[in-house]
Amino acid sequence: MAFSSNSGGGAMADINVTPLVDVMLVLLIIFMVTMPIQSVPVDVDLPQKTDKPPENPKEPPDPIELRIDAAGQVFWNNTPTPVSALQQMMRNEVDRDPTNQPELQIDTNEAAEYGILAKVLTAAKNAEMVKIGFVQN
């Protein structure tokens, strides 16, 4: 319908956008076809299947319970511990058996400062702990 029913009775002044949409779709298809597909291979080392089970599977050690309360005090297995001593304590746990580390379970109070948690995580990273979990209450 090219005519409007307004009081002027004249032709509608709107542009017909159907040809414009058709041209845009054709251009889109041309660009999609002519654009080279870029693929970057990613090397992934997947474990290989073995028929024999692992020899003497080790029992995992007891987890380390690390709690940070609202006042910023850190507790290592319910024992108050200064933040400065955490890295050495974590390093001692890792050095016992680097292939079978205990899990570090971190429980923080909602009101605890993030800076204390950041120091704990930095100490864990520097001590090369790989099993870190967060306890959710």
Rank of each mutant, 00 (worst) to 15 (best):
M1I: 07
M1C: 08
A2N: 14
F3P: 00
S4G: 11
S4L: 09
S4V: 12
S5Y: 15
G10C: 05
A11I: 15
M12Y: 05
D14F: 12
D14P: 02
I15G: 02
I15W: 10
V17N: 11
T18K: 14
P19T: 02
P19Q: 08
L20P: 06
V23F: 12
L27C: 11
L27K: 06
I29K: 13
I29Q: 14
T34Y: 03
T34S: 09
T34W: 05
P36D: 04
P36L: 03
Q38T: 13
S39A: 14
S39E: 07
V40I: 15
D43P: 00
D43N: 12
D45E: 11
L46E: 04
L46F: 12
Q48T: 09
D51E: 07
D51K: 02
K52E: 10
P53V: 00
P53N: 02
P53R: 01
P54L: 08
E55A: 06
N56Y: 10
N56C: 02
P57A: 00
P60C: 04
P61Y: 11
D62G: 06
P63C: 05
E65H: 14
R67D: 01
R67E: 02
R67I: 00
R67H: 01
D69N: 10
D69K: 06
D69I: 05
G72D: 03
W76Y: 15
N78G: 03
T79I: 12
T79Y: 11
P80I: 00
T81D: 03
T81N: 03
V83P: 08
A85M: 10
A85E: 13
Q87I: 10
R91V: 03
R91G: 02
R91H: 09
R91T: 09
N92L: 05
N92I: 04
N92S: 12
N92T: 10
D95E: 05
D97H: 00
D97Q: 00
D97C: 01
D97R: 01
T99C: 01
L104D: 10
L104M: 09
E113H: 08
Y114C: 05
L117Q: 09
K119A: 08
L121C: 08
T122K: 13
T122D: 15
T122G: 14
T122P: 05
A123Y: 02
A124M: 05
A124L: 09
I132C: 05
V135K: 14
N137A: 05
